[in-house]
Amino acid sequence: MDWIIASVVVVALVGATTAVGLLWRRRQGAASPLKHEEAPLATGDFGGTFDGAFGERATLVQFSTEFCSSCPGTRRVLSALAAEREGVAYLDVDVTHRADLVRRFSLLQTPTTLVLDRRGVVRTRIGGAVRRSVVIDRLEEFA
């Protein structure tokens, strides 16, 4: 009897963990539009990590850590998108030692990507490895 209970628990655990994993994977790279518009950010809000200017149409800001497995892939996608498009800037912020920025932007995972419009207002937040098509859709919407 105990073996039956143990087997049921094991099967239920595998099932529940698989469901969590599927849910997590579906949300990776999905764009979450922000409910209310926040005040525009300035380049100084990134704690001295930004030495250029925001893009004339849009800016892609990626938060990374030194040991983040999907950060290099996201960096490739975003920097290529910015290079292909006039007026789109790309910024990679390393927050490995920047607790201030982790708190300021409520980062729960890296990479986290912010898409800013021409005024520096955050229009989209993307958690996890980005999907090229999702970023393009969002850029085309307002940039």
Partner: peptide, 11 residues
Amino acid sequence: CQLYLLLVRLR
């Protein structure tokens, strides 16, 4: 990768 950021926030 996720716990690390939580630790950074708590620091």
